[in-house]
Design a protein around this nucleic acid. Sequence first.
DNA 1: ACCTGAACACCGTTCAAGT
DNA 2: ACCTGAACACCGTTCAAGT
Lengths: 232, 232
Amino acid sequence: MKEPVDRQQLPSPRRARLHREAVLRAGVGLADRLGLDGLTMRVLSQDLGVVPMALYKHVANKQELLEGMVDLVWSEVTEPDAEHGWKQALRNRSVSLRDALTRHRWAVGRMEASGRPGPENLRQHNAMMGCLRESGFSFRATVHVTSLLDAYVYGFVLQQKTLSFETPEESAAAAAATRNAEPEETAARYPYLLEVVGELAKEGYDYDAEFAVGLDVLLDGVELLRGTWREG
Amino acid sequence: MKEPVDRQQLPSPRRARLHREAVLRAGVGLADRLGLDGLTMRVLSQDLGVVPMALYKHVANKQELLEGMVDLVWSEVTEPDAEHGWKQALRNRSVSLRDALTRHRWAVGRMEASGRPGPENLRQHNAMMGCLRESGFSFRATVHVTSLLDAYVYGFVLQQKTLSFETPEESAAAAAATRNAEPEETAARYPYLLEVVGELAKEGYDYDAEFAVGLDVLLDGVELLRGTWREG
DNA sequence: ACCTGAACACCGTTCAAGT
DNA sequence: ACCTGAACACCGTTCAAGT
């Protein structure tokens, strides 16, 4: 028997009405899969089964789209919970931030693009500063610590792509190629680098462990100077 | 009297022959002035007084152009000099790296783009690891410290654009706008953030000083754990 | 209120041709 | 060896029009 399905919506397909959140989520998904360069307004619209211009009802332009996507990443970061002490709270939140930025590798490079942080970004930093203030840190120390931890996480994620310790020969080969020199010449030019890289290739390199070690150095440093900052 | 000037080069203007270095330098200059989005192959070629396609004799494509530009930024960073002790050497090199990335704000966001570091990048990190190894750091500790310091500098430069403590009202206003809420509502939503930002607006915020404070926390932390790492 | 279609100015890059 | 000119497929975004 014939069903009277989607009669009155024949010209437009049976698809949920678009809204801003759906556009942003689709953008994040595509950027995860294709990288930022692969994410164009046209590709995004196609992914949503819509004509390119339809997007402009929900985001002002591509820049605003990217800002919204970045804030969606911020929404995945858990707020610090001072219940288990400031140190553990900051550790958890830093790990959570790194996880989010690792899931969405395109995001860290775009953090700088806009001057105005989104609401989720603000919510996150409000919680961060609340945690520190409630734990007895001074105004200035609160900013110092927030700045320090964010910088470390951003930078570490950035490095995960830059330095490729996993494939040291590749780095050496690439270096040789750019200078059109033989590999032996490269080895002579960067002796310390190749020695360290070679040693690590044997021992293995674990980004998670590296991140944790650096983070603990930071938190210990913060603890040491906490007293000093409280006076100032 | 008529001079026999540039007779045989009439069709092509009296301009120095193009070479790769000149292309990269022009690219850096334009990116500094116009931002990365403003730097197109066509704009760059026009800046050099040449047709767009002429660039492709000197750089393979735009990606390779950007990689070359990033490596040019690395060439501005001074190598650590272990003569005054590893701590001072690392401090100086970190300040130098931050200065370079601050002069060329577009660079930090592009550090991640390519998997293969350029020769100047390799030279820098070779010197970095040489300084640490010669100062008695273990292989693993050398990587820890390098990773930690680079991450901090990258992240700090990124933050210089992200958080705008200079204009706290602007942030609040923007946040209110995105949620189409009144400013009072924003104040209620981010009480800690606004309190801290307000306090800092009064006291003043100096990025150079902030950077130095965080850097010292890091270096002190490294010094503390140096012994531990030497054993492992 | 939301979506469409055609168009505009621009982009990176190719190819074949010039000198 | 180096530069040019015309062309291709694509981009973000506008405008006026549809429902």
